[in-house]
Nucleic acid binder design. Structure first.
Lengths: 398, 398
DNA sequence: ATAAATTTGTGCGTATGTATC
DNA sequence: GGATACATACGCACAAATTTA
């Protein structure tokens, strides 16, 4: 109480005096504190010194001032709030992320937590910055959707520091094995993307497609896994994957690559047009159908009868590119997407796609984290099973 | 540059001078800034004034000081957090909110603030809860998209308490006049939705449409305002709005109503098919074109030649429903949307739509709030002008 | 309705202490 | 030690906002 240390500056003594008034509820939240003049007299200091104390307290959030009225206590933690949760995703406004965020927010609010959001724009450095920022905000838990999860994780040390501060982590969409093994305070919720890629491709194989191209994202682990599933499915049907029919892209070139890839695959426009002219006969004439299978592009390669896409966003671009080449979906080429996003039902051809839990995934992640915080039980590891949503973007060949 | 406003305090002039040095990289991260004595002479002020400027900059994270060495620039991106900002919107994952949220988050992160998000699900009680929650979190500012802003504002007292705690407020999409008048710490940024609805409808009228249906959202003020603009445009062309050609929906029935509405409007399928069969002749034969105008549905009403939609999401559903009825856009019916969302370019027919600032609106709101916080200047009131983006979903009749 | 008192905001001048080079 | 730069501290004056008499 009276630690009038000879070395301690006067303004600091006043600072802690005021802080104690607030902490010990001698001055309640919103009530007025002693005026500057009162404190001047009480401590026998100049007004400047009192102001310095109050000034710092204001910046630190302990008090707020009103000219002509006074200085008032702001009790930070009176509330019913249980605390704050950090949420870092690659994007906020794009694609399925709003649904994931919304799911997390609704559960956290329901349970009395606040959610601080931050995004990384798929940039590892920004991810580091956001993790550091959130650490300064006294968060109790962190929900993290890793950025560029297929690449080296340069932020591993940072995440270890997070755990060292007793902040629990739940990963979504991708996980870091290294951390899981080290700490029990790590959970995750992901999709079985290998299986997702597998069932999408298997469906095409089962419906008679054999020449199946694929386009995948290579800088996040979901893309790598979906490609893995795609290859497994092909192999399980004894089809050898053709590397020139598989494209990979990153965040940076996701606009260009899909279009270029499709145009390349279908670059023989002359033959492509031939297909169109014979479209009506296809269903009736098996010989023509077979002949179509040997239509080749400029590079003397067979054009594919289906394309497996990393997600719906890419699938839409692929379908647009196919149309630009004068071909139709699914009559000439079948297309499958991934995520069952709102885009899947926007086109005139309904997109066959793999269901992503989206909002439910957010809700699950939030419940996970809360359980880890309140019941302190580990092993919160959930893998969602993918499910195929069949619409009309794939034809049935056999 | 030299906005030495007579009313602006000297220390704040020095503050922004220093901030600019850092922002414009005239003093790099870690480099020493002019000493207190230098600035005293440069600005002709006392040392105390310079210290006040530096003191605040230090608390805000712009500089750090070393006794005996000097004051040094701190690159904001490595600095400590300036504080937290609350963000309350009606929805998180729907409509344009993801983009608004994203805009706010990006600017706030850039400037060193954290953003706490919360949503109200268009529920006034939940809004009250969220405002109370955020007050407990020591936020410096609040960005609020009012819930049910057309109705009585039961949370007015709560917002006054927010202001009393020296938390600045920026409204988006709607504002509360009562608060604006009472406090200088309130800003807003809105869109002129009446004008938006007006220019969309006026465009249809100018291109010869007369029988213009409309479908609007009724549970948020934007929907009400857009409908108002729609009616104004019709009236300005001497067209009497037909109530049975105007539909209203809420969040809950936005899936069903648009489809039902269109099917109802076009319920005479037989006549609809007649239109299709004669499509090729339309452009050449005026008499047929005129006869089409008298095509009636089952209820013996003329079918519309255009539909104004609340937003792009609805427009897409409307277009799908029109196709289901065997009609085409824009050949048989023109459609305009609102927001210029990503949906506008996904369909094979590009959607003519009204541009919404979306992300920029969020960015502006964030900049607003930061200026209010750091430079303490009021009068941050912006109304965005809408703009029509013309694509191919409307035909030109006359 | 006005004036006075109270309280914070801005600003000047001065002095001394402490850390760095 | 001396020069420089920030840290602490006192005293004074007037402005602006608010409350009270």
């Amino acid at each position: 109480m009276f630690n009038h240390n000879t070395n301690e500056p006067k303004y600091r003594i006043i600072k802690s005096y005021i802080k104690n008034l607030i902490k010990e509820k001698k001055v309640e939240d919103g009530q007025m504190l002693p005026s500057e003049y009162e404190l001047m007299e009480k401590f026998g200091v100049s007004r400047h010194t009192v102001r310095q104390a109050f000034g710092e307290l204001e910046k630190e959030g302990w008090v707020y001032k009103k000219q002509g009225k006074g200085t008032f206590a702001r009790n930070v933690s009176t509330g019913t709030k249980k605390g704050m949760i950090g949420l870092i995703t690659t994007y906020i406004s794009d694609y399925i992320f709003p649904h994931i965020i919304s799911g997390i927010e609704s559960v956290m609010t329901e349970e009395g937590y606040s959610v601080i959001i931050a995004n990384t724009n798929n940039n590892k450095e920004k991810e580091a910055y956001q993790i550091k920022s959130l650490m300064e905000q006294n968060i109790k838990g962190l929900i993290l959707e890793p950025t560029k999860s297929a690449e080296d994780n340069i932020n591993l040390n940072l995440l270890e520091e997070v755990l060292a501060r007793d902040i629990k982590i739940v990963f979504i969409n991708a996980t870091y094995k290294e951390l899981e093994d080290k700490s029990p305070n790590v959970g995750y919720i992901l999709m079985d993307d290998v299986k997702g890629g597998f069932i999408a491709t298997r469906y095409l194989l089962e419906t008679g497609h054999r020449k199946i191209a694929g386009i995948f994202k290579r800088d996040d682990i979901q893309g790598v896994r979906r490609e893995e599933g795609y290859r497994k499915a092909l192999e399980s049907f004894g089809v050898v994957p053709e590397e020139n029919m598989i494209a990979r892209f990153t965040t940076e070139d996701k606009i260009i690559i899909p279009k270029k890839f499709v145009h390349n695959l279908l670059s023989n426009k002359k033959n492509a047009n031939k297909i169109i002219n014979k479209k009506e006969d296809i269903n009736n004439d098996k010989s023509i159908k077979d002949s179509l299978k040997s239509v080749k592009n400029e590079n003397n390669e067979l054009i594919p009868d289906a394309i497996v896409c990393y997600n719906d966003e890419i699938a839409v671009k692929v379908i647009q590119a196919i149309k630009e080449c004068g071909l139709s979906v699914p009559q000439d080429i079948s297309v499958v997407g991934y995520d069952d996003s709102s885009l899947a039902t926007v086109l005139d051809v309904g997109l066959t796609t793999v269901k992503h839990p989206k909002k439910q995934m957010g809700e699950l992640a939030a419940h996970h984290l809360i359980e880890m915080l309140e019941n302190n039980c580990g092993n919160h590891k959930i893998i969602c099973e993918p499910e195929l949503v069949i619409r009309s973007s794939c034809r049935i060949i056999k």
